[in-house]
Every structure is written in structure tokens, then in C-alpha cells.
Design a protein around this nucleic acid. Sequence first.
DNA 1: GGTAGCAACCTGTCATACAGGCTTTAGGGA
DNA 2: TCCCTAAAGCCTGTATGACAGGTTGCTACC
Lengths: 232, 232
Amino acid sequence: MSEPSPGLVSAAIQAITQHIRSEGLAPGDPLPSEAAMTRQLNVSRTVVREAFRSLSAMRLIDMSAGRRATVAKLDTGAMSMVIEHGITTQQISVQQVYDVRRTIEMRTVALAALRRTDQEAAAISRSARLMRENFRNPEAVMEHDIAFHEAIAAASHNPVFSLIVTAFSGVTRRTWVIGWRTRSSDEAQLKMIKGHEDIADAILKGDPRLAAEHMAEHFDKSVKALIDAGIA
Amino acid sequence: MSEPSPGLVSAAIQAITQHIRSEGLAPGDPLPSEAAMTRQLNVSRTVVREAFRSLSAMRLIDMSAGRRATVAKLDTGAMSMVIEHGITTQQISVQQVYDVRRTIEMRTVALAALRRTDQEAAAISRSARLMRENFRNPEAVMEHDIAFHEAIAAASHNPVFSLIVTAFSGVTRRTWVIGWRTRSSDEAQLKMIKGHEDIADAILKGDPRLAAEHMAEHFDKSVKALIDAGIA
DNA sequence: GGTAGCAACCTGTCATACAGGCTTTAGGGA
DNA sequence: TCCCTAAAGCCTGTATGACAGGTTGCTACC
């Protein structure tokens, strides 16, 4: 991927990912030690370390002192960093993120309705219930809200959806409270929570169309709330 | 984002991203030098360098010899690495990627039909035309195919969509030829190219519904081709 | 006033050193 | 013989110093 940007570190990164590929390594499998890689590539340990560290920052590998680096399980680390970077440098707007979320979650919710296990349906319902039970504590409501959406993505049984949805959670944490505040009355806030319960019920019933409808409504109201609050 | 994984490097990464945020830096703006960061954080240059290098690997910053690091424009580098990692370690399947692509591109194509400039519409049509003109050269067809989808994402005027679509391009490059081969006859191959032209025309006409329909058809046939080829 | 060249700064890479975590193994005790 | 302990040997985390080569800005000369 991308040109061999002139640099030993980039080459080392390629070599490591190439090693994972050619050896067919799975998550948890150990990688060569830094010393071994140093000899193999004939570069200094500095270069090899920077390569390992870069992959670790992207969460493609796990590093810890004393142990060799291992292949990592799929993790949203890098993706959320990219999204957050885009937001903080104003290259993407919160509204644009919500449009993407809406697009994706209209699908995850439908898939969840079709594929969810009973356990997954229960987890989704539980998050919705916890939103209501904690509704005097915005922080808690937010966390259950986020968990709700991630649980739906997980129930879609497509880890790529989970990856993307989870990557957006960081942005959500920074803007959620704004939307909450625009729902100034208890009534408005409870209505928003009701929306989540409706989604959970539709998933429980296994009705993808209904679930998608409720999800669409939820997003439309959320975006409206953000716009009312002046988020460009 | 994520726990302060015990480590000076992680702390340094946080400090740098925090600096970008608090100073409100925009793409192209320079970051502190390694030496400055070394003093500020009171750690060795080794640590600071690994932090910078990690951010550079994620394409959040640009580094080059002699110059200070600068804030980077939005780039798909990290995301495509994550996706490729998921594929090569068999944590996600090609079919799952296609499902996500279908979901997203059904939206980008509709947005493109509504928002595209004349220039963007022309670029999309051109890619489709180049597919036909080069159709004896699979490699070229593939590249124009990829460019076609990226152009549509760009015309959606939502960089997050572009980011995601482009992140998938690497996977496409590895599997595209498989789908092409299952279309064994010239007729079948030209039919697939016709599908792209239909999409381009719908975008040109500004008909989002028609564009989405053609896109759906395109993906359904592509997925079918992959399944026929035995891609799990 | 303009320009060439030098000085200062910056990143890229290397070598070395040492602290501290982990694993394995050898040895001793039961 | 078996188990348990402790030391040895790898391994990563961090620090320091050095030098090459690129970049930039300033200075002094023309």
C-alpha cells in the first residue's frame, strides 16, 4: 500500500506486515524479536523499533515489556484516531459523521434484527433500559447510548461494521451532551430514550424494516438537535 | 481515546495530539521539534521520536528530513492498514467488506447524483469510459473501476465516505481479478462495464434513485461472482 | 540591493548501555 | 522420581551520544 516512502522504517513496516501475511499468522501469534528483525533487515534496532511501535500505535500488533510482540485482534484504535484527527483539524464536520453513522446503522440495525442471538438482543435491550434508569445522569445515559449502538453493530455479525461504528464513538462522546441539552425538558429526553427502546423491541421481534425505521427517525432527530444547537 | 497504556510513548502521542487540538492546528501547520518536545515532556528523544513516527505511520502528521513535522491532511493510510490486517489475519472476510461497501456506496451514489458538480460527473463518466476502452487489459480496467468508485465517493462531498471507500480499495485490488475471471465471456465482462456506465449516467442525470438501483445491482452481481469463485 | 554561502537547526540512522519483565532450565530438596 | 525454586538468558523500554544529510534563514560580500 502506497509508495515505498523512502525510509528504512517504512520498509521495516512493510517487512513486518509482509511477514504476517506470508506466515499466515493469526491474532496472538508471536512476531520475530526486534533483534531478529534487525539482523534480517540489516538496519539498526532504532529503525526496527520505530516500525514495531508504529504498528503497535495502529493496534495491528500488541507489545509489552519482556514479551515478544504478537499479532493483534481487530481493534478500532487507528480508525478512531483518524476520525478524531479529521474532526479536530476541521477537515470533517460532526454532521458528516452523523450522515455516515446513519447510513451504516440503518444497515446494522436491520442485520441485527435478522441475525441477533437471544443474548445479543438482551444486551441491546439492557442498554436501552439502563438509559432510562439512569436518565438523571447524562454521563451514564451517554455511555449506555454508545454501548447500545455498539451492541447493535456487534449483533450484525459483521466486524467491519463494528469497527466503523466503534471508531465513531469517540466523536460521539464529544458531542453527545450538546444534543442532550437541546432536549431541555424531561419529556423530550425520555422521548429520545423511548426511541432507543423502540429500536431494541424491533430487533427483539426480528423486524428489520421496523428497526430501520426507528433508527432513521432516531438519527433524523439527533441531527436536528445538533443543528438546532448550531453545530455546523 | 483508550486507557493511558502505561508507557512514555503513548503519553507522548497523547501530548502531541493534544497539542494539535489545543493550538487549533490545521493541515500544514508545523509541530514542535523533537528537541522541544523532549524538553517539554522530560523524556528522551527516543520516546518522542517513536511517538512522532507512530503518528506519521497513521498519516496524522507528515514528516520529512530537515523539516519539522506538520499536521497532515486527511488520509486513508491507517484505515486501509487496519482493513488489510483484518483480511490477512482472517478476522474479516471479503464478503463482509463487500456488504459494507454496498451499504456505503448505495449512499454515496445517491448523494453524488444530488450533489455532483459537472466536473465530478465528467470524472465519473470518464472512468467508466476508460474501463470500456481498456477492457482487454484487466489491470487497467481494475484501476479505472477503483477510480470510478472513489470518484463517486468524492462527489458525495462527505470526506468520511471517501475515507472509508478508499480504505477498501486495497482489498479490492487483491480480489478484483477473481470476480473478473468468473465473467468468462467478453459479453459478461462488457455487461459489467455497462453497469458502471448506467451508474455514471444516472449520476449525470441527477437521479439518485436510479443511481442507487444500478449500484445495488452492480454489488449484487459482484458478490455473486465472488461466491461463485468460492470466496468465503 | 541582491545574492551566494555559511551557520544553525532539524530529522534519519546507528551504536551502546542498562533497567526491568518473562521464560526456561538446571539444580536442589522432598 | 517429582516438584519447586532460583538463576541465566532473552526480550522490550528508555536514555545518551554521535554523525550524516536536508532545510532555512541570516550574514557578509559583491
